[in-house]
């Protein structure tokens, strides 16, 4: 059976998104870029001034929040503090007048899915941040929503836990086949989890594409600069960009450009160099097997690259 799903949001700033069924779709951008507002319009918390929201070919713009059948996960979790874990997760089913026995079964299954079995009678305040996040996830998923909306759901977790939850969320989304719209300002998170990403800036979508596309073929200067590190160049009046890992450090004799190492940031599996050459600073990333590269600040060094790796940006 196939189901088509077209999500379309046109905000005041003219955002149009087509999200496919079962897709992990991220809205990525700095704070204030309109990503959360876009998500809130999909959820129904905000009414678009112009434009419509469609789900599965059906216009839901005028459908109130509580009839949209969407799961929502907030950065602050927004759990009901006066209810236990079970009561939190059961809430959506209770609102749908699901029979008691079915509620018990589905809540238990949802809690098992997020590895929270045994925590049933705790209150949110008795759980860690990661556990609260899982409750929020179970609560949103148990109603089997058409779409799961996540507003920076991992933002409040520390780095280690965030990475673990990234894997878990992605895995869960794939297993359930749920369409997931994910808002984040963390580019690594978006690259790691998404099927497709919409990079937003000042209320506009700058580029939509798969993570490899967004990273490898940024279309605008903003996207190039926002995702990872990049060398922005100017060639024949056109803005161009070159990723640091596409630049090789070579002996000065074989170089297209020679200069001196300004700083060397050891990153573990790689070193990121700032090289002074040709009157500007170049970023170059050299991966290595964990050994500290021998180059130090002040060392003479040559830069080489392949012209095919240079991306031309829209001006």
């Amino acid at each position: 059976m196939s189901k088509t799903f077209d999500g379309k949001v046109v905000a005041v700033d003219g955002v149009t998104l087509d999200i496919a069924a079962g897709e992990f779709f991220s809205l990525l951008g700095p704070s204030g870029c309109g990503k959360t507002t876009s998500l809130r319009m999909i959820a129904g918390f905000e009414m678009p001034d112009a434009g419509r929201v469609h789900v599965g070919g059906q216009d839901i713009t005028d459908v109130p929040v509580h009839r949209r059948d969407m799961g929502m996960v907030f950065q602050s979790y927004a759990l009901f503090p006066h209810r236990t874990v079970v009561q939190n997760v059961a809430f959506g089913l209770r609102m749908r007048d699901v029979p008691r026995a079915d509620i018990d079964r589905r809540v238990a299954a949802a809690l098992a899915q997020v590895a929270l079995t045994g925590m049933e009678d705790r209150r949110p305040s008795q759980l860690s941040g990661g556990q609260q996040q899982r409750v929020a996830l179970a609560r949103a998923l148990v109603i089997e929503p058409r779409v799961l909306l996540c507003d920076e759901p991992l933002g409040a977790l520390d780095r280690k836990l965030r990475q673990q939850m990234q894997f878990e969320l992605k895995e869960l989304q794939r297993r359930l086949g749920v369409t997931l719209v994910f808002v984040t300002h963390d580019q690594e998170e978006a690259l790691a989890m998404s099927d497709r990403i919409a990079v937003m800036n000042r209320g506009r979508v700058e580029q939509v594409g798969a993570p490899t596309e967004i990273y490898g073929r940024p279309r605008t200067r903003f996207v190039a600069d926002f995702i990872g590190e990049i060398n922005l160049l100017e060639e024949a009046g056109k803005p161009r960009a070159l990723r640091p890992e596409k630049i090789q450090l070579v002996p000065p004799a074989q170089a297209r450009l020679s200069g001196t190492v300004e700083t060397a940031n050891f990153l573990g599996g790689a070193t990121l160099y700032r090289v002074q050459a040709g009157g500007r600073i170049w970023l170059a990333r050299e991966t290595h097997a964990g050994e500290r590269s021998p180059r130090s600040p002040g060392d003479p060094v040559g830069l080489a690259w392949n012209d095919a790796d240079i991306v031309t940006l829209e001006s």
């Binding site: 509580h66 929502m72 602050s76 809430f91 959506g92 949103a140």
Partner: peptide, 18 residues
Amino acid sequence: DHRIEEAAAALGASPARV
């Protein structure tokens, strides 16, 4: 936290039930 009420609405609670 107003989002607690929003979460309830998203879960299908009408304004009165929220």
